[in-house]
Design a protein around this nucleic acid. Structure first.
Lengths: 351, 351
DNA sequence: TGAAATCTGAGGTACGCACCTCAAAAATGC
DNA sequence: GCATTTTTGAGGTGCGTACCTCAGATTTCA
């Protein structure tokens, strides 16, 4: 049998109450006694039983995840992954509430953040661009002891960031583009939703780093801004294709993948250009299999979602996290290593 | 407050004992009553508290993981990942025992497997090539109700396989090789430890599929067998390099990466050939950063280890698994998306 | 309708730990 | 040495579920 707290008490020659004080770092125990208890713990190889501890604490975690109300495939997939992770975590006294806020309204978001403090949440995860009001709202929440983690897009004053290193992601796109195009010659088009967004800036920087250093034969054109609008995307892409006849590759830094493949299809360029984009949404999967898209840089949303819950719980308990497990990988997906779609798992509520 | 079993009993108008019988699928309850209870569960949105359930069951899991005693970097990394996952799982009544067996002795392995049945293990994970004696030993274990999962290398009669699809991995290597070499012309050398091992056969098949279909300009040479011996590797590689002057790429299907880079360095070919190999070991990391290796196809060993524990526990409890979470991805690692090495996490035994 | 079989209720204990109280013991300051 | 403070012990309760027993209620079948 594994040792219990009673075994420690006996081994250390102290009472259960003292062991408890040591284990839970409560005050009122002499250094010497603390050491005696810790020695006993080490001798017996005691490991706290988390199930029992959580039960006794009757601790539960109400977590909020705030996503913009954008209806992009990426956000939808992310939301779905979060909901699924939330269902799985329900058996562990964890309740996840998915809240949406108007994408373009930082003040609404700040107000929402402010309202969270009162409703005894144990932690908040947030995917939003950084603006001064948001920064202040995050600071206020943290001051109240609520952990706040940034999701997908980093917020410098959050407790933690869950997502990929966008500069490295840009570099990865760069190597793939460079090598797939054999180092040149040719031109590469770069598309982004908003060139002011932190993520886009970092991806572009990483991409440029590699292209300049390793593939000088390829000319990387100025970033085109789509503002998340299919019409704008279509216009700028068509225009650029007309002006730059040596374009052989397109790096889509974020969003608008559906519109992009559509425009390429219409202009008869499907499969003729090397297209590298981000995020493995359903449509991108499809385009990968047909060869319209050559490679995708992505992050595993299931992992991202589960990691979010784990990190929030750890932060709420002020426990350390397993850095290796929580690191979100920059995944490269080609047609050949496209992960098979597992059937939507039927979560058994009694399991 | 979340509903408990008592709430269900009240809501369904039955006693606690009946709710318990329904929840744990014990006999002696009429269809009609079962339905009443399930309806109450649905109405209240009851979710079983796993912490309490595990505690009450006082269930614990002693798991065995059997690895060959090979001292390759891959096995060492895998063992380390398993040990770490085992430590983290200790708080959840899970004890992992890492057992090694002589790599080339199927009978010793079979004997070891046979001896496990008596020592109340809850499950067994096994990384071994399939041989008739092993197959029989696995069957015997399963007949005794012990779940057996195959690790890294598939065993057709195991309960589950944890690892990557090697054929898809080979295809992935193929696309990368083909695209990195611009489709040809040239020759590609292929190296493998043992050409009889199931994994190697599948990787080669996947690689050939893609090369033949998409890159006919590249000639894929016959596989060279290294038998895990640096000397043999050196010999066959040097010989092949002499005989096939148009070699531009090397696909190392498994093992021997250290020796390979060494031979290339000695022959002045470092960085001049496109080398694609498997498994991100410390040495391979190094070779990636220097450019000696262009790309690595790998599987996340941390994930593999944690997945092993989760799957074994689920199998031991006859519970369904989350296919999406347990799917091991085929990861492509280039210098630019090399995951940063997290510091070896200090596992807090009290956490 | 009666006996047998089946179903249900009431109540209990146990799991390992957290957290509480109050009194007793030990250490400390003066 | 005494009062004061600090440390320790003994004992308790509760977390939500699993699993057990035994008596009483209900249904089934002859």
């Amino acid at each position: 049998m594994r040792p219990t707290v009673n075994d420690i008490a006996r081994e250390a020659g102290v009472s259960l109450a003292t062991v408890d004080r040591v284990l839970n770092a409560r005050p009122g125990v002499r250094e010497k006694t603390v050491k005696a208890v810790n020695d006993a713990i080490a001798r017996l190889g005691y490991v706290r039983d988390l199930s029992a501890a959580n039960l006794a604490r009757s601790r539960s975690y109400r977590l909020a995840v705030l996503l913009p109300d954008t209806e992009s495939q990426f956000i939808q997939s992310l939301a779905a992954a979060l909901v699924e992770a939330g269902q799985a975590a329900a058996t562990s006294r964890t309740e996840l509430r998915l809240l949406r806020f108007p994408a373009e309204d930082p003040h609404a978001l700040a107000a929402l953040l402010g309202s969270l403090a009162d409703r005894d949440y144990a932690g908040v995860a947030l995917m939003a661009p950084e603006t001064p009001v948001v920064r202040d709202a995050v600071r206020a929440l943290r001051a109240r002891g609520l952990p706040v983690v940034a999701l997908v897009s980093d917020l410098p004053n959050a407790d933690h960031f869950i997502g990929i290193d966008n500069r490295a992601a840009g570099r990865t796109a760069g190597v793939l583009m460079g090598r797939f195009l054999g180092g040149g010659p040719g031109q590469v088009m770069v598309l982004g939703q908003s060139l002011l967004a932190r993520d886009m800036i970092e991806r572009r920087r990483g991409f440029d780093e590699v292209m300049l250093r390793d593939f000088p034969g390829l000319e990387v054109l100025q970033s085109l801004e789509t503002h998340g609008s299919p019409a704008t995307l279509r216009q700028v892409v068509v225009e650029m294709l007309a002006n730059a006849p040596r374009i052989r590759g397109i790096y889509a830094m974020g969003g608008g993948n559906r519109s992009l493949t559509q425009v390429l299809a219409e202009t008869g360029l499907s499969g003729k250009l090397t297209v590298i984009c981000h995020e493995l949404t359903p449509h991108v999967r499809q385009a990968l299999t047909t060869g319209e898209i050559a490679a995708v840089i992505t992050q595993n949303l299931g992992h991202l979602a589960r990691s979010t819950l784990r990190v929030l719980r750890a932060k709420a308990d002020r426990q350390p996290l397993d850095a290796a497990q929580e690191q979100i990988r920059i995944e490269i997906v080609l047609r050949e290593n496209l992960p098979v779609l597992p059937l939507p798992s039927a979560i058994d509520p009694l399991a």
